[in-house]
Amino acid sequence: MARPTTDQCQLCQRRVALTFHHLIPRKMHRRTYFRKHFDRAQLNEGIWVCRRCHRGIHKLYDEMTLAKQFASLTALQNDPAMKKHIAWVARQKGD
């Protein structure tokens, strides 16, 4: 996990402290399906998001759903429920 290249959340675009979100949750890395279909680098890919966006991601979806349906920044950005959450977070001040 490399350091973020910006201080801007990749979802809501706010400039706040960031956390690393694994696109394939770490809990799934030991499962046979994911070990067979993804290499270590792919399993460790992620995005830098603010705490509010990160909490929202995990509140909306369980780890298996995230791993199978939302394993890319684009998939998260295009999801209607996430869009609604991101819009709300973008209006918030600070973290």
Score class of each variant (00 low, 15 high):
A2Q: 09
T6Q: 09
T6P: 05
Q8V: 15
C9V: 13
Q10I: 03
Q13I: 13
R14N: 08
R14L: 04
T19L: 02
T19C: 04
F20H: 08
L23H: 03
L23Y: 05
I24C: 07
P25Q: 05
P25T: 14
R26D: 08
R26V: 15
R26K: 14
K27C: 09
M28K: 14
M28T: 14
R31W: 12
Y33P: 04
Y33C: 06
R35W: 04
K36S: 03
F38H: 15
R40E: 12
R40G: 01
A41P: 02
A41V: 15
Q42R: 07
Q42N: 06
L43I: 11
L43E: 04
N44E: 11
R52H: 08
C53G: 09
C53F: 13
C53P: 06
H54D: 11
R55L: 05
G56C: 09
G56N: 08
I57A: 06
H58Y: 13
K59H: 14
K59Q: 08
K59V: 13
Y61L: 02
M64E: 13
L66E: 10
A67R: 03
A67D: 08
K68G: 01
K68Q: 06
F70W: 03
F70Y: 15
F70I: 09
L76K: 11
N78Q: 13
D79Y: 00
A81Y: 03
M82S: 06
K83N: 05
V89W: 00
V89E: 04
R91K: 14
K93H: 11
K93R: 10
D95N: 13
